[in-house]
C-alpha cells in the first residue's frame, strides 16, 4: 500500500461573491483525486484543503482553482 502522506494547505481565493461559488469550488475541487477534504470560506476568502501529497500539491490545487476562473495564491 503506497505510503500516503496527508498534507493540508490554505489557498487564498479571490473572486468568490456568494454561496454558490463556494459550493462550486468545494464540489469541483473536492472531486479531484487525492483530495480528502475541502473547506471554503467566503469571509476568509480561502480554501482549506486536506490532500494526499503523493497525488496533489499546493501548486496543483491552486492551479485547479485558477482553472475554474478564480484567482488563487499560496501562503508564503
Amino acid at each position: 500500500m503506497a505510503q500516503t502522506t496527508v498534507n493540508s494547505v490554505k489557498v487564498a481565493v479571490e473572486g468568490m461573491t456568494c454561496g454558490s461559488c463556494v459550493q462550486n469550488i468545494e464540489q469541483h475541487i473536492g472531486e479531484l483525486p487525492g483530495v480528502f477534504h475541502i473547506q471554503v470560506s467566503l469571509e476568509l476568502k480561502q480554501a482549506a484543503v486536506v490532500f494526499d501529497s503523493s497525488m496533489q500539491s499546493p501548486e496543483s490545487l491552486a492551479e485547479a482553482i485558477e482553472d475554474m476562473g478564480f484567482e488563487s495564491s499560496l501562503p508564503d
Binding site: 468568490m16 456568494c18 454558490s20 461559488c21 476562473g69
Partner: peptide
C-alpha cells in the same frame, strides 16, 4: 451563473 462571482469566473476563464 447565479451571481457576479460566477460571471467573473467565466470572464477570467
Amino acid at each position: 451563473m447565479t451571481c457576479e462571482g460566477c460571471s467573473g469566473a467565466v470572464t477570467r476563464v
